[in-house]
Design a binder for these strands. Structure first.
Lengths: 237, 237
DNA sequence: TCAGGCCTCGCTATTTTGGGGGAGTGCAAA
DNA sequence: TTTGCACTCCCCCAAAATAGCGAGGCCTGA
């Protein structure tokens, strides 16, 4: 016998548009019996996309206030891998506190559980369950649904990636091996002279590589090129 | 009634050392009835750590030959998020082909399914199931075990992170807000003059920020600092 | 065969950085 | 209260990176 969750995931698998994602998330909220369930995608450019059950005025306020860089859930999860309970995040800073107050005023639960997800090109997303209840009850909920939430988070993200609106028209031409070498060593802090020596090529040749990598990446300068290459996973430092 | 898989995961949850991970992976291989099951961790520094059931001479050869930068599984997965079947990767380049031949000669299966996992600080890991069989059989296997493999991959990675040998002693002092601003704008390709204008501070002040960020990050120059800040998730470009 | 990408090298001039000095204000914790 | 730390400003000069010009050989796929 199939669980209800399975059915929802089934439907998710067949989702063709962003509306279907929205539908699925509403259905999942009902299944989990939580106040809110949200999928929040942060583009490498800082663009955001989300779907979920947060009230729209809160979403608007979040965008207006540029809460992305304040929200302890984002800030905290961005540097970690594990799913986290909101209680374990750092809410002590002044902006974080006022953000928290604002969120609660907008009907966001006092409890939350967020699953960070990372993808290529520096993609980062969060799948969050939020609820208004006591610590004990929330503890029980997360205990028993942790794994399901992780799985759903990933199914969800996969689907969102497929449906990604900004399917980069800039088909990032791959960097050539030499360009990767050059950029990697530059990213490791070596000067052009050092890199040229390490690669046993003339400094001028090295410059050509950096230049072409830069233009391929649409970067304004070397540092920018390194940043882009890193975000896109083209080089590993 | 608990599945065998659940029991293994239970044991994994209680793992205290790397040997326990190795034990778990052997048990899981038996459960899935595949030739090989491997967890392969790639540090941001390029260091590797792995555990699994690959023959030790293959592991040694992999390290000796620096296959990390050739292996299509690594290269391919590094830029994607979805778990992939090895058949969907690009094996066409010359080094990739010779790598493939070498792998098969060492008893690695012709089929494979890899789950990429990403964590903070540029952490990247792969959880791979590999087998020797026909396409149809492999298709059936991945169909029915995809979700379990993803889940286990994440459990495994979580455990590996906890047991991480290189628990950075360099407690990265956090960057100050202004330092983050400065570094972020620099990473976006603006020159010092432009950044200074954007932040409405003198160019000299900006330099002080970059300098202090650089020293906090132990970076050799600005580009290096940006690279480190990005890898550590301290800035978002 | 030929275009196009990749790898390699040279020169000059300008702009941007980096590293070295200092110096003053706040604020917050020890 | 003293000691940090974050933030802001100033000068100078050498070193490094950028920008523009140019050249040729090799290999691959159309």
């Amino acid at each position: 016998m199939m669980h209800r969750r399975e059915l929802i995931l089934e439907a998710l698998g067949q989702a063709l548009g962003l509306e279907d994602l929205q539908e699925s998330i509403v259905a999942l909220r009902k299944h989990f019996r939580v106040d809110h369930l949200v999928y929040h995608w942060v583009n490498s450019a800082g663009d955001q996309y989300g779907c979920g059950t947060y009230p729209s005025d809160w979403v608007q306020r979040y965008l207006d206030q540029d809460y992305l860089r304040v929200d302890p859930v984002i800030v905290g999860c961005y540097q970690r891998f594990h799913p986290v309970d909101w209680k374990r995040l750092d809410w002590s800073s002044k902006p974080a506190r006022s953000f928290q107050a604002d969120a609660i005023a907008h009907g966001i639960g006092n409890q939350g559980f967020s699953v960070p997800i990372r993808g290529p090109n520096g993609q980062f997303a969060l799948f969050t369950a939020s609820h208004h209840c006591g610590d004990m009850e929330w503890e029980r909920f997360t205990e028993s649904n942790r794994r399901d939430l992780i799985l759903i988070a990933h199914e969800f993200n996969q689907k969102a990636l497929e449906l990604e609106p900004g399917r980069k028209p800039e088909k990032s031409r791959n960097l050539s091996p030499r360009e990767i070498d050059a950029l990697t060593l530059i990213a490791m802090g070596y000067s052009r002279a050092q890199v040229a020596e390490a690669l046993t090529i003339s400094e001028h040749t090295l410059r050509v590589y950096i230049e072409s990598a830069r233009s391929k990446l649409g970067a304004l300068n070397t540092t920018h090129a390194v940043a882009r290459a890193l975000s896109r996973g083209l080089i590993i430092v």
